[in-house]
Amino acid sequence: MLTSDLSIGQVTALLAEGRLALRTGPFLFRIRSSIPAISRGLTRLYARHTVEVDPPFSDFHVSLERSGGVRYLFRPQVRFLLDEWTPFKPLPLTQAFAMLEWGMNWCIANHAHHYLVLHAALVAKGDRALLLPGAPGSGKSTLCAALVQRGWRLFSDELALFDPATAEVVAVPRAVGLKNRSIEVIRHFAPAARIGPVARDTAKGSVAHMAVPEGQEEGGAPARVRWIVFPAFTEGAEEQIEPVTPARTMLELIEHAFNYSVLGERGFNLLGRVVQEAEGFRCTYGELEQVVERMEALAAK
C-alpha cells in the first residue's frame, strides 16, 4: 500500500493510534504522533512510499509528542522518542516534521550496525554510485538534490549504508533536506522539484524538504561506489577538481562514518575495498550547474 492510497484523515487517525509504518529502503519505521504536521508531511513528501498498517514487525518504533508542561502554552515543543526514550532535546513544534527526519536518521546511525553508516549523500547511475561525503555547509545536499533532478537515482542525501558482506551500497530513499539559500537554488535549478513547506528559524536556519522523484521510492537495486567526491562549496569559486589518494580518501571517509568505531576490523576491511574500487576527488565549486556537468562527465568516462 502507498501513503497516497489513504486519505489524509486516515493517515492522521492511524498515526494517532500508532498503527502506521513507513518503509524506507531496508527499514520499516512505525510512527506514532497526533501532531498535524507529521501527517501533512507524510502525505505530501512520502505520498508514493510504501506504508503498512499494523505490521507484525517494525525495525523502529518512534513517536513525536508535544512536550507537556506550562511551556506548552506559550512555546509549544515537540519531542522525538525511540523505544519510549528520548535521545535528544525537544524542538519548537514548527519543526516537528524535520525532527521526524532527523530522528529516523538517528535511529539508523545509532542502531543499524549491520551496515557501515556514513554521513554522506549518495546517488547513482544504474549500479554505479557517486558518494558525496561532506560536513554541513559543504553543499552535499544541494548537489544531491540537483543531481537527482537531472536523472541520477537517489540513495540518500544524508546516510550512505554499506553492506559489509558485499561492500555494496543500499538506498534509503527519503525526502532531501534543503537549508536556507539551497531552497531557492533548487527551485531555480529545477522548477519541477516537489518541495514541502519551509520551517523557519530552526537550529539549522530555514529548512524544507524535497520529495523523492516518482518511481524511486522503493530504492531499487544496490550499487557499487565508483566515485567519491568531497564537495566544497565556496561562493563565487571557480570549479576545480583534484584527485585524492585512496589512503587519504579512506581516512576522510572514516571521519564521516557514524559507526566505524563499532564495526572495527569489519569497517576497515570494508572501506579498504571501497576506496580501491572507487576514484577519490576533492571538488571546489561556486556554481551548481558547473559541478553537475562535471559529475556527468565523470560518469560518462
Binding site: P26, F57, D59, H111, A112, H113, H114, S261, V262, L263, G264, R266
Partner: peptide, 15 residues
C-alpha cells in the same frame, strides 16, 4: 527480519 537487529547489537558488544 529480526536477525539484523541482533547482529547490530552483537557487533556493538563485541567491539
Amino acid at each position: 527480519e529480526v536477525e539484523p537487529h541482533l547482529r547490530s547489537a552483537r557487533y556493538l558488544a563485541e567491539r
